[in-house]
Design a protein around this nucleic acid. Sequence first.
DNA 1: AACGCTTGCAACCGCAACGCT
DNA 2: CAGCGTTGCGGTTGCAAGCGT
Length: 309
Amino acid sequence: MRNLSSRNSTRSRSTPTPCCGKVGIKRGPWTPEEDEILANYIKKDGEGRWRTLPKRAGLLRCGKSCRLRWMNYLRPSVKRGRIAPDEEDLILRLHRLLGNRWSLIAGRIPGRTDNEIKNYWNTHLSKKLISQGIDPRTHKPLYPNPNSSEIAKIAPIQNSNPNSFPLEANGGVYRATATRENDNFTMTNLDQFPNQVIDDGAKNWPNCDGFNKGLQSHHEQNKEEDYVGNENEDAFSLFLDSLINENVFVYQQQQQQQFQQPKIVGPSGEPMISSSQAIHHGSISEAEVAYSMAASGEKDGALNSYDLA
DNA sequence: AACGCTTGCAACCGCAACGCT
DNA sequence: CAGCGTTGCGGTTGCAAGCGT
């Protein structure tokens, strides 16, 4: 494919933006000279302070553009070239788990950027899935009944929340909400357990790259607390790897050894089950838990709700 | 050769989270 | 705690190359 880094055309946009609309700020494709200036400067002074970096480096670019160029193209760790079949398989599995969480997916694929994965998904994988009769958004069959010619009769799961995730268990599709309040991870399956709350307590759950921030900041604010910390990251990696490898059993076994049994908490005494019990029961899927954890933690403890109906 | 359509992807935009004061 | 600046993310755009006619 062409090398866009050497493109010289400039794109014009009518609406100025806070950082890129200033007079004298260059836009459009980067020249090799600009690349060299940026790369040399970052090698010397390091990443960060993007806002002021262009001025310090002597570039007529906005900080946002510099950051993007570095992250997606100039970083030494960025792997160029075609996506390998095993990488493609990993992207598919991760997308099934995480949805359009490109940065999270990219974090699990060494050398690949979120932008690259996003582009690859949009140009290759989504079309590939559609051609296979699979909804790229839900990873479910577009036409559940292959014998039916009325393909529109059963519509794919409609989902207004871009962060939402299909819930699948025992061959059925469920609707659930996942919340995180006061450090307690809570998942309620509205269909199967309309009056039940699943609460494991967030501390018993590992985290991952994309939503480390939430727990991390909390950790820093509560240094006295006996936090799991790095063990969580390792455990989540193990957990995610297990899911990726479709070998959740390994994870569950290790979880039993590493973590205490989840505390079952109920706000007003209603019957409750833990997430692991729910998984075992089949009311929620492992992927659902993984995703909900990611979604709930990432926004710094904000309440998240996923309407998957 | 010329034209129009499609494809692939770098770059841009808007927004939300985060961090500092 | 509010306000403001910065950073990072996901969606979208637009253009050059490829391809078909």
